[in-house]
Each structure stands twice: as structure tokens, then as C-alpha cells.
Design a protein around this nucleic acid. Sequence first.
DNA 1: TTATCTGCAAAGAATTTGCGGGAGG
DNA 2: CCTCCCGCAAATTCTTTGCAGATAA
Lengths: 140, 140
Amino acid sequence: MQDSRIAKMCVEKGLKMTEPRKVIARVLSDATDHPDVEALHRRVRDLDPSISIATVYRTMKLFEDTNIVSKRDFGDGRARYEEIQGDEDHHHHLIDVRTGEVIEFYNEELENLKVKIANELGYELVDHHLELFGTPISKN
Amino acid sequence: MQDSRIAKMCVEKGLKMTEPRKVIARVLSDATDHPDVEALHRRVRDLDPSISIATVYRTMKLFEDTNIVSKRDFGDGRARYEEIQGDEDHHHHLIDVRTGEVIEFYNEELENLKVKIANELGYELVDHHLELFGTPISKN
DNA sequence: TTATCTGCAAAGAATTTGCGGGAGG
DNA sequence: CCTCCCGCAAATTCTTTGCAGATAA
């Protein structure tokens, strides 16, 4: 089995590539949604039932600090995670407040504007959070 | 003592204007920062030591549901609150990642863009979260 | 009066951590 | 080997809630 992209990044960053980390990295690489820790742990357990949720928490913090994943907040009380892709694959989220459905979007204009705003305030942008919350426009 | 703007909104919305709510409303009206629940409770206690933190939590949820305040997430684990002003006073936050300092800003272009993006995705924008994280640009 | 509201303390939910054994480099 | 890591369970932190008495309208 080929190592996940994340596993490669761990090696690059000098982290010990333990079995739990490999499994968690794979789960993250395979995820197309925005799982919370409990969901991650469920998927991890399917691959290796011996891995504890504490390790998932510790690993997510580690991956966050190492810029491998980013933490998201969609309004419910728990942290959600998403693999950080290259710049070109960067995106934001629109959350349907009625269904909880998450729609990803990217907008060039928005990207430029954020950088510009930060610069005008005398800051270099290092990170940002943006979530839109909306209701579907009815077709009447 | 004059009722706070928030107190008036409560009356308009038909909420019982109890003593704890009056005090919490005043604290919110007077706040120029983004206090978390513990900070709010501390300030509330200075005005009326009998008010419990449970009531602060309950009242903040009530005020949130009634669109009197909005909840913010600045990356630390707790909810922060801010009085909702009129549309023209709407703003966002840039957080200095080195000091934690919060800079408020408003950008018309950004406001328009958000609405436009939501509409293009087929949604009516009902709420949004935006925080920028940055480091000061050194003057070298 | 009477439906709401409140303080208290206990319960819940999400996340963190101390410890002793285990495993990667 | 020797440090870093892990599972376990207990601890923390933030927030919610059941209950019985208090209070606004």
C-alpha cells in the first residue's frame, strides 16, 4: 500500500511515522468531507481497532501545528478537520443552515481581497476562517 | 438610569425584562471588546453578585436566538460575544496571532462579495463568520 | 395569578493529560 | 537503547439542564 500524501509530509517534517499516525494519515487523505474527531476515530478503528481516541486528538493537534490539516468550526460545538491542499486547491464553505450540508467554493476575488485587507491594516495574512451560512433560494 | 439599547430590544421582542437580563444587557452595551462568558459573568457580578454563570449562559443563548448578540470564535476554545449593531456598523476581525489583539475592520467590497457568492451558489446569506489571522508587517 | 425565570449543583460533551508500558529510528 | 509515542482512565474545561423556589406581567 502506498503511503498517503500526509505520511510523506510527516517524514519530511521529521515526525516518527508510527502505526497510528499512518492510519490516521490515510483516513485523512481518503476523507472527502469534514469529519470531527469522533468520526475520524470511527474510521481509524475500522482499520486498526487498537487506536484510541486520545491518540486521534493528539495526532490532530500535531498535524494542525505542523500545517498538515486545518481545524474548522461549522457552528456545532466540535472541531472538524480537513487536509490542507496546495494553494490552488484552497476553498471555503457555505453551510446550509437547514440541512447542515456543506458546500465548498473558491473565489479568486475573495482571496485577493483578504490579502489586501490584511495588508492595509499592516498585517501579513497567515491564516483565515470564512464560513457562509445560508438558506436555499426557493425557485418560486 | 436609562435602559440600554439591548433592554429596549428585549421589550420589543416580548421578553421578560428581569433584573439579571437588565444587568447582562447593560454589560453587553458597555463592552467594547469581545468577552467570553466567564468575563461577562465577572462584570455582571460587579453589578449584582447574586447572578449565576448559568444565567449568563442561558441569557447569551437567548440573546443569540433573538439576534441581539452574535457568537464569535477566535480560535481559543470558548465562545465570545458581541452586540449586534445596525448594518452600517457591521464588521469583521483580524487577530494578531502573536499578541491575540483583535482589530475590527469593515470592507464594503467584502460585504457585497459575500452576498454575491452565496447567491451564485443558490443560497440566501443569513449569517457568516470571517476572521483573518496575521502577523504585523515589520517596517524594515 | 401563572407562566417564566433563576440559582444551585449535578450532568454532559469535548478535549487534555499523567502514567507506565511499548515501539520507532 | 533511548527517546518519543500510545492506550487507559482520570482530569479539565466549557456548557447545559433538572428542580424547587422566586418574580415579572
